[in-house]
Each structure stands twice: as structure tokens, then as C-alpha cells.
């Protein structure tokens, strides 16, 4: 899923400083699951914002709504009357959702309430870790299902650098060295021979390096 985290209230206060009537929009999918931008968080942040503005002597009127998915027009379109009633929108979606709203509602400012972080998993209670960079050319088959492009700080494709300590990454002692994990995993599944092949430099064209990507699946178009 897409993992995000909320911006601090002080930053959000700055972002919406010019408005006194605003729509807070939560998103019911990824950011709800990662406890960043669902109905619950919209409620908490609305409460905090009202209090902060009241203390500052500039009360704010906040309307709250949470929709199923902010990244699909089908769900966004019903927001129109609420957007119209307010001066601006504070979106609690990932960066994709924020932009979907901004592109649909041309006459209202749309702001991001979250910092969108990564594609990851829930590793432990309230602990999320990044697993995928969305590079567009998946190499997981070669590396025992562990992604060095995402999980090695240097994105190395041919083995560990000399910098890992006691199986931890050179730059973060709380993060295991991706290459030690790959090595153990391939050893465990009897595929260590995969590490003998030299992996050529990655072709970054399927990734983001050429600008924003677009996928058209003709077979699904009517």
C-alpha cells in the first residue's frame, strides 16, 4: 500500500492560514489503513486546527468528509457541492489523490495534509517499512524476492558494499543490510548461483527518470 504520514499541525496551520472556511477531505483506502488520512485522522486534525485557530483569535470553519478513494474520479465527483461551499480543500490523501482533486476542482486551492512516503507494508503495530520503489522493471525474481533497488541505500545490484555492520546498513543501524538478507534468502532457497551472475547497470527508462509515467492498457479500453 501507499504509506503516508501527517504533516505537523503547525505546518498545516501555515498552509491554510489565508482561509477561514475549509473542506477537510479524508481518503478511505491506503492512508486510512496506515492511520494517516482516514476519517479518524480528519476528525483529529479538524479538532486540532479549530483549537489552534481559536487560540490564535482567528476561528476557522471546517467541514469534514471522507470518500472511498481520492484517486478516482468516480468517487471524487460527488465532492463538488462541498468544494463549492468552501474557500479551499485540505486533502488527506496521498500525493496522487491531492492532485486528482486539484485537477478536477479548478477554482479552489487544494492543499496536501500528508507527506506521502512510500510503497510498503505494515511490519509491526504502527511500524511501516518501504518495500517497493515502483521502478517499472521488477527484478525481484533475481534476488529471492528481496529488492535491493529499494532496500539497499546505495541501490547496489551486485552484492553488499563494505559498509554493513553486524548485518546492519552502513547508514542506519536499525535497518538490516538488504544484501545480507538477499544472501541468506537465496542460500535458504538453494539459489545462491543467482549471485554469481553480473547484473548489468539498470535500465532506468521504465522508472521515473523520463518524467511522470503513463500506462495505457488497450485491452481494457472500450
Amino acid at each position: 500500500m501507499i504509506v503516508a504520514s501527517p504533516k505537523p499541525v503547525t505546518e498545516l496551520k501555515e498552509i491554510v492560514a489565508a482561509h477561514d472556511k475549509i473542506l477537510f477531505v479524508g481518503c478511505g483506502t491506503c492512508v486510512t489503513v496506515c492511520l494517516a488520512g482516514g476519517e479518524r485522522e480528519v476528525g483529529i486534525y479538524s479538532y486540532a486546527m479549530r483549537m489552534a485557530r481559536r487560540l490564535a483569535g482567528r476561528p476557522i470553519d471546517i467541514e469534514q468528509v471522507t470518500i472511498e478513494r481520492q484517486c478516482e474520479n468516480e468517487f471524487i465527483k460527488d465532492l463538488a457541492p462541498a468544494v463549492e461551499r468552501n474557500q479551499a480543500v485540505l486533502s488527506f490523501a496521498c500525493g496522487a489523490g491531492v492532485q486528482a482533486l486539484a485537477e478536477r476542482f479548478l477554482n479552489r486551492p487544494v492543499y496536501a495534509a500528508l507527506n506521502t512516503q512510500f510503497l510498503g507494508i505494515l511490519e509491526d503495530q504502527a511500524v511501516w517499512t518501504e518495500k517497493c520503489l515502483g521502478c517499472g522493471d521488477c527484478m525481484l525474481a533475481q534476488f529471492g524476492g528481496i529488492c535491493p533497488v529499494t532496500r539497499c541505500a546505495k541501490r547496489l545490484l551486485n552484492g553488499p558494499c563494505g559498509g554493513s555492520t553486524e548485518e546492519c546498513c552502513e547508514i542506519d543501524k536499525d535497518r538490516p543490510c538488504a544484501w545480507q538478507v538477499i544472501y541468506k534468502r537465496l542460500k535458504g532457497i538453494g539459489q545462491l548461483d543467482r549471485l554469481e551472475q553480473i547484473v548489468p547497470p539498470k535500465d532506468w527508462r521504465p522508472a521515473w527518470h523520463g518524467g511522470a509515467r503513463k500506462i495505457i492498457r488497450q485491452e481494457h479500453r472500450v
Binding site: 551486485n158 552484492g159 553488499p160 563494505g162 553486524e166 548485518e167 544484501w179 545480507q180 544472501y183 545462491l192 549471485l195 554469481e196 553480473i198
Partner: peptide, 19 residues
């Protein structure tokens, strides 16, 4: 090239040196 000979997990280092 370089290699770290006295690391606790030397096998991955050797695999890389071979490459």
C-alpha cells in the same frame, strides 16, 4: 578494486570479489 577481508559475513564479499 577493494574488498573487506575480515568482515563477520565474508561469503557475500567473496562472491562480489569474484564478480
Amino acid at each position: 578494486c577493494c574488498v573487506t577481508p575480515c568482515t563477520d559475513e565474508v561469503e557475500p564479499q567473496i562472491l562480489k570479489l569474484e564478480k
